[in-house]
């Protein structure tokens, strides 16, 4: 390595204050993109100048489920698939919180798929960041609802033949007010989208594709994490506003990325409030800010 010198006092990694540095290095493999998405998330928190005491990260189970353990925020590592309903309770009990659900594709769209669509339908004011690596990585690379057709996984040894979910279309159809897709290559755009959803009311959904070199890429002979990042660079086409029905992913097809949906719709709390005021008038008592002493 080159000659090293001591850093000037004023220079530190800008993401450092957002991390539980005592827990790093994290568990993610070399070439995995989850850490890159967390890097973007930290930068979004920095950019938006959020009150970090009021931002909460809720994760499910899996590789991305470990994000909650690395962010220097109130953070909850919940059960498999149930980050969204946990986040729903948290947000409704304390509406002053900004609640971010940070989890993987299997956690959110398979075991947690029911909660994903219902939270979107209700327009619960939570922000969902879904890292999609096309596979159940933590358990050893099994196929899931996002595994592309023909991909080999440990439970589809002869190639996947189930059709996969197009997650932006699913979130869009269920009622999300913000839907975007980026990849771990699109760090600036991903950061911008994260910043936007932190400031937007309602159910927001960002899918971000990530390499899983250890399981998905290796088994499909797609090289290292870096090769997948190059693939994202080559194959991604930015189409902001694209109809989500046109953004399905294939094994090696073009990857349509962009902000697909950004619309306004009253969120759950507004709808509740409106209905209660209409029906009960001044007999309606709004839920107080919770405190159990």
């Amino acid at each position: 390595m080159s000659t090293l010198e001591v850093l000037p006092q004023e220079v530190t990694n800008p993401v450092e204050p957002f991390l539980r540095t005592e827990r790093i290095p994290h568990i993610w493999c070399p070439g995995c993109g989850i850490g890159t998405t967390v890097n973007s998330f930290a930068r979004a928190l920095l950019e938006t100048r959020m009150d970090l005491d009021k931002v909460v990260v809720v994760s499910g189970i899996g590789c991305t489920g470990r994000v909650a353990g690395y962010v220097e925020l109130d953070s909850f590592h919940t059960t498999h698939g149930r980050a969204i309903p946990f986040a729903t309770g948290l947000k409704l009990a304390n509406p002053s919180l900004t609640v971010v659900v940070y989890s993987g594709d299997g956690d959110l769209s398979a075991i947690g798929g029911n909660h994903l669509i219902h939270a979107a339908r209700r327009n619960i004011d939570i922000k969902v960041i879904c890292v999609n690596n096309f596979i159940y990585a933590m358990t050893g690379g099994q196929s899931g609802p996002t595994t592309p057709l023909t991909a080999t996984t440990s439970t589809s040894p002869y190639g996947a033949y189930e059709p996969s979910f197009n997650l932006p279309q699913l979130a869009d159809a269920a009622g999300a007010v913000y839907v975007a897709r980026w990849t771990a290559f699109h760090v600036r755009q991903m950061t911008r989208s994260m910043s936007e959803v932190l400031k937007k009311k309602g159910f927001c959904f960002i899918e971000t594709l990530s390499p899983c070199p250890t399981l998905y890429e290796r088994r499909n002979k797609l090289g290292e994490g870096l090769d997948t990042m190059r693939h994202y660079k080559e194959k991604s086409k930015v189409r902001n506003g694209a109809p989500t029905s046109e953004v399905a992913l294939g094994m090696r097809d073009d990857i349509i990325v962009g902000k697909f949906v950004d619309r306004e719709r009253p969120d759950y709390s507004e709808l509740l409030h409106h209905q209660m005021i209409t029906q009960l008038g001044d007999k309606y008592v709004e839920a107080p800010a919770c405190s159990c002493g």
């Binding site: 309903p85 409704l92 919770c290």
Partner: peptide
């Protein structure tokens, strides 16, 4: 499944649930 963890989220948000 949802109901039984929504209440846990609410508790950590400060509610009795």
């Amino acid at each position: 499944l949802a109901a039984s963890i929504t209440l846990l989220g609410a508790v950590w948000g400060g509610a009795k649930a």
